[in-house]
Design a binder for these strands. Structure first.
Lengths: 226, 226
DNA sequence: GTCATGATTTGACCTCGATCAAATCATCCG
DNA sequence: CGGATGATTTGATCGAGGTCAAATCATGAC
């Protein structure tokens, strides 16, 4: 891991993200003034469950996977954060201890925001408190969505739901590129890679084509019905 | 559903809860000044996914179940809230639309707090914003815990984990009463009632005794190892 | 291009938990 | 007490998805 200072481009990514977008510039500057950037190799562990954690992380580039470990060493993904996402915020409210492990997928560049300072600023600045509440709420929703999908949908249905989540409304014919290896998608959906593969092949007869990382949809309705 | 005003006892329950406990009295009074109380029969639906929702609910007595519906009508529990819990707060940040269904278990008495007012107060009062952030964070953690347990643990392991969560540390011999029907516990753990029953019987050989709603543990270690 | 390495798919098998049906058990009510 | 109703358990069966092994595909290094 190497650490650097924030450059202009990084700053632009930060300011354009969902979290900072709605903040007045002065407020954003206050939050970002002592931010440090770090780069990480694929598979680097950023922090581990239970460890002290006094930063909130922002993904400048790459991807980060949040997961828990089972007694037997198996891993369960909680979330995958792409560029532009803020994570690790829950430790701020839980005694500055991480509640999960985090690992870089790809090479990743992260900005670290001091969590004590952020919390202090949130007390003084309603806009920051509001942004934090929205963030917490969104992350809670992500987990609840995941939980509900796990419990209600079969593997092919979960994959269909993921695809539809990437397809703009009203379009019936659509194609996009997975932002990560199938590997990672499988984890995110709570599946073994083999199960993901079989799910894709089950969806083929509903007009889904998979070539490498490129997914093509030919019949939105069929997917929705699945 | 009948609606009433807040009586002294209800007010005491509210003020003693995790959310209000840390607020100055004047702040709590501001939040509670126009609260309305409603009573609900078993199985009453409080609100449905997607509906407009402009209250936050507080459980004065009874239990409330939060769940999502699948296409086929199957239900997946997101959370169960006992007396003293605040819920429905996420709608506040998501366009005042419920993200799940809520249903009373038992007879239930609920206090409704106007969510627009609460949000306005949160902007003016850092203590309220902070309490809200803690609440959101706790609810997010609950969902993440659930998700991780679903993915990492078998049915008997999840039940063991639930029991241990109700057993104070360091005690090896312990007994407690379920706060709801096995029915409800099954849903909360993402199991069919039959699976819960079988899980209990699998735990019998690890020193767990079940008589009606009363659970007895005779060997904490064995449960932890399970 | 050739090879080596890692990703993905496919096949075979097996386990967990869902489902349906039936048997018990518990509680409440007259 | 006798029944009725609902909760819980038990039995039998089935299917989804995990695991392991092998085959195939893709990619980058040379």
């Amino acid at each position: 891991m190497k650490t650097l200072r924030l450059n202009t481009n990084d700053r632009a990514v930060l300011l354009g993200s969902a979290f900072f977008e709605k903040l007045p510039m002065a407020t954003s500057n206050a939050v970002l003034d002592d931010v440090v950037v770090s780069t990480h190799e694929e598979h680097d562990v950023l922090f581990a469950q239970g460890e002290p954690l006094d930063h909130v992380f922002f993904v400048l580039s790459g991807l980060v996977r949040l997961y828990r470990l089972g007694k037997d060493g198996r891993e369960a993904d909680i979330a995958v954060f792409p560029k532009g996402e803020l994570f690790g915020e829950s430790a701020m409210f839980l005694g500055n201890r991480a509640t999960a492990n985090a690992q870089a997928i790809d090479h990743a560049m992260l900005a670290r925001i001091d969590s004590r300072k952020l919390r202090r600023l949130a007390e003084q600045t309603p806009e920051i408190a509001d942004a934090l509440m929205q963030l917490l709420c969104r992350h809670a929703q992500m987990a609840e969505d995941c939980l509900a999908e796990d419990r209600l949908l079969t593997a092919p249905q979960r994959v269909a739901s993921y695809i539809l989540g990437n397809c703009p409304d009203g379009i019936t014919n659509f194609s996009f590129r997975l932002p990560f290896q199938k590997n990672v998608l499988a984890g995110k959906l709570g599946l073994a890679p083999e199960a993901l593969s079989r799910a894709f092949s089950a969806l083929r007869r509903s007009g889904v084509t998979v070539k490498g990382r490129v997914i093509e949809i030919h019949d939105r309705q069929a997917l929705e019905r699945f």
